[in-house]
Design a protein around this nucleic acid. Structure first.
Lengths: 201, 201
DNA sequence: GTAGAATACGGACCGCTGGTCCGCTTTACT
DNA sequence: AGTAAAGCGGACCAGCGGTCCGTATTCTAC
């Protein structure tokens, strides 16, 4: 028989230094990605060195590169995620689809504009396609279910994919970063595009 | 003064062995990419070995990985490129925009379905985004000019980007490859989407 | 406070990649 | 045939993500 904590709660509190180093690593990675030209320029050694810890610590804390970027993304996403999951209209649930779909895509575009480099790193994580990451699945399911409430729309699943493709990180970077398109202009272009898709024939 | 060939024609015919090796390398690369699960699995050494030449020969012939894939793409694209540049309607020039735009996107989708692995390699070439490659610029300009002839369409440039994003290689692979969506079903989904975008409010 | 076990640290190390280099072979021209 | 240019190929290189394990730190029990 066990005398320690019940099996249901095997999660131990991390050690103080571990928590501190984890936070330092997240901050360092965030900073490096924000300043770099291309996410590929940032190596794992760079992140570790910038945080003042060894590479082993970095990999122990996060597992691999993808997980580090995912943790960074999760932290930044929190406000938007909350607004979408249980916030007021037009983002939250209970909003009419015709209003919610444009709002979701606008919010997503703004988020990607605000975190361009991070999103570039997240979606361009080399080997695996972005479509196998679970965060894509969540956005797709959210948008698909909203689109399902739009009358006359034949295929919400594909439409969701196509609309999400219009705000992919590298396209946003190409338009806003390389070509210098104005933020509000880009937003209104996207809104006009979404409007057409929702309007139907 | 020069006694050799005039400066205007510095292009020399390649040596016979060089031409043969180049062809063998293209064939080997094509074959390997077609059979692999992910383009990342194929290394440059694999290609050279499969073609029966040394790595040095491979890099001498093509320069780098991107150029090899680009050459492969150019070869496969030739028929479609001809049909679009100076073929009959609905692909060729002189087709009314409302008819040509869906035809172009359908042709592009079919091309990506037929050459999934190659296109995956072409667009997912690691470091640089697909939007900086010249082949993207050509498709975008073609589609943009066609869309410019559609009445009531506010921004042909952005619309072209958004429509092209709907047929990106990794999305096509996700739908047709991973999820096993039927080819004709995917084509009709795309057509319906394009129809909505063109129809307007 | 102290002893001891558990946990975390860190940088040398590994396998592998795209890409380079240069002595040697093959081709092409006269 | 002779010669110079072009091409060949695989040993080699730098840098990457990721691993390993001897050592240092923190937590727990007394």
């Amino acid at each position: 028989m066990e005398t320690g904590p019940a099996d249901g709660a095997p999660a131990r509190r991390p050690r103080k230094d571990a928590a501190r180093n984890r936070a330092a690593l997240l901050a360092a990675a965030d900073d490096l990605f924000a300043r770099c030209d291309s996410p590929g320029d940032i190596t794992m050694s760079d992140v570790a060195a910038s945080a003042g810890v060894g590479k082993g610590t970095l990999f122990r804390a996060f597992g691999d590169r993808t997980a580090l970027i995912g943790a960074l993304y999760a932290a930044r996403l929190e406000p938007l995620d909350a607004a979408v999951s249980h916030g007021p209209p037009p983002l939250g649930p209970g909003t009419p689809p015709a209003e919610r779909v444009p709002a979701l895509l606008d919010a997503l575009l703004c988020f990607k504009l605000d975190h361009r480099h991070l999103m570039l790193a997240l979606e361009g994580t080399g080997s695996g396609s972005p479509y196998q990451a679970e965060h894509y699945g969540r956005w797709h399911e959210l948008l698909r279910s909203a689109l399902a409430g739009v009358p006359g729309l034949a295929d919400p699943g594909f439409t969701a994919h196509a609309l999400l493709a219009a705000v992919r990180a590298d396209l946003v970077e190409h338009l806003a970063g390389d070509r210098g398109t104005d933020r509000d202009e880009l937003r209104s272009q996207l809104q006009e595009f979404v409007r057409r898709v929702l309007a139907g024939p």
